[in-house]
Each structure stands twice: as C-alpha cells, then as structure tokens.
Design a protein around this nucleic acid. Structure first.
Lengths: 123, 123
DNA sequence: GTCGTTGCAAAGCGTTTGCAGCCTA
DNA sequence: TAGGCTGCAAACGCTTTGCAACGAC
C-alpha cells in the first residue's frame, strides 16, 4: 500500500507543472526544487511505481531512453527539439498507416516522432 | 586510411545478407559465422566507422538502442515485431505531418515506427 | 616495417538493487 | 510501532576505451 511522501508529491508535481514528457534527470532537477537532497534512485523507483499505478506512461523516443508523461491523455504524438532536446506533445495523428504494412503482417500500433526546432530555439 | 580485414568484410556481409536493420549483438552473431572469435568491441568500432564513412545509417527505435542498415536507401520507415523483436523495412510514407506542428516550430524531419507481428509470428 | 586493427579486460555511464535508518499512517 | 520509503553505495548491462599483439599493405 502506498504512502504520500514529500518525494512522491514533488515528483508528481514536476510532471503536472512541466506539461511535457520528462526524463529521469529532468524530473530530478525539477523535483529538487521542492525536496532538497532527493536521490536519483528514488526518482527511478517512483517513476516505475507511478507507471505501474497507471498515473504515468512511457514515451518512447528513437535512440534514447524513455521519457514519461501523465497517463490518460488522448492519442497524440511528440516533437523533439534538436537544439534544447525538450519533447513537446502534439495533437492529432496521420492517416494511411495500414497501407504501409504487408497484408501478412498484423499492425497493432505506431509511434510518430517529429523533430526540428521548438519555438524558442527557432528564434 | 582504411584496411580490408576479415572482420570488416564479415560485418559488411552480415548487413548485406540480412536486408533488415541489425543491432550490435545481431551483427556479432551473424558475422561470427564468417569470423570465429570476433569480439563485440570490434563490432561496435566497425559499426561506428561504417557510419562515419556513410556506408551505414542508424535506425532509431523508441525505447531501445539504435540498430543499423546500409545507407542510401530511399526514404522509408520501419516495422518492429513485438514477438521476435526483428525490425523490417517498409516502403512509402504518410502525409499531413506539417499540420501537426505549431507554425512557430520548425519541422526538419520525422520518424515513424509501426509495431505488431511479422508474417512469421502472426501465423 | 609501419601503423591501422583486433581481442581482451578495464573503465564509463545510466539504471537497478541491497540495506540500514527514516517517516507515514 | 510496523512496514513502506529514502539515500547511499554497490551491482548491473551495455557501450567505449587502453593496450599489447596482430596483420594488411
């Protein structure tokens, strides 16, 4: 059974405030604003437990470790800024996925990641 | 300047024969059929050098390390089988990417990964 | 013979785990 | 007070690097 600790509250708050997918190190930096001395092991453990609880979901990005965002968002995709390395949520999806796959293959899902420069870095 | 060693030839041959993106361990297994005692460090070093030469390109997959395939293929995407974990090339692309991105963002590229079960594993 | 390449082992690096003490309920 | 939670440090797994021996040219 789960306890409400300062650490867990700070980690959840970090996600709620960020409104974009965060990696473990980003979470550590943000949550340390609330809890001094927070350890990276606690961040990893808490992320895993929040994923198990269904409060967070993993965001898979090509060639790098997963980041995480609150679960329950509508189906959407992500934009990664080449310059600041932050990831942003995008609304909407694309069509015509099924026609890319051979008929003998079973299509069960897809991931789409757009890359470029975010508003801040494009300026 | 670059030398033609048995190891390098075996690693290139592995990619040519496989006709799908390979990870370092897959390369090791395949290339060891030609060169007994091949070391994993050599595989990593050779992959890096082939990428630098422009003979290989990295294939980024969500939540896992890059795989590699010969460079120069037409723009395409990938299908990852949930069951056997192999990755296959797909032809074609999708439309309507630009409309997903806020106008203030600069879109420079995209990655699309379809997941499901391959012909073999769907049977 | 030169010097790039190789295999081994050690070092890195991000992530996970063991453990004693802490703190929530 | 009990037992989950935390921080530290050690352990892990994958990738990279140092080094002496090897081998392509």
């Amino acid at each position: 059974m789960e306890r409400n600790t300062r650490q867990r509250a700070a980690i959840r708050a970090a996600f709620s405030r960020a409104r974009r997918p965060l990696g473990p190190t980003e979470v550590l930096e943000l949550a340390r604003q609330d809890v001094d001395g927070l350890g990276i092991a606690t961040v990893y453990r808490t992320i895993k437990s929040l994923v198990d609880d269904g409060w967070l979901t993993a965001v898979g990005l090509p060639g790098e470790p997963d980041r995480y965002e609150p679960a329950g968002l509508a189906h959407h995709h992500h934009f990664r800024c080449k310059s600041c390395d932050r990831v942003f949520d995008l609304e909407g999806c694309v069509e015509g996925l099924k026609k890319l796959v051979p008929k003998s293959f079973q299509l069960e899902g897809h991931e789409l990641i757009l890359v470029g420069r975010c508003k801040q870095c494009a300026a």
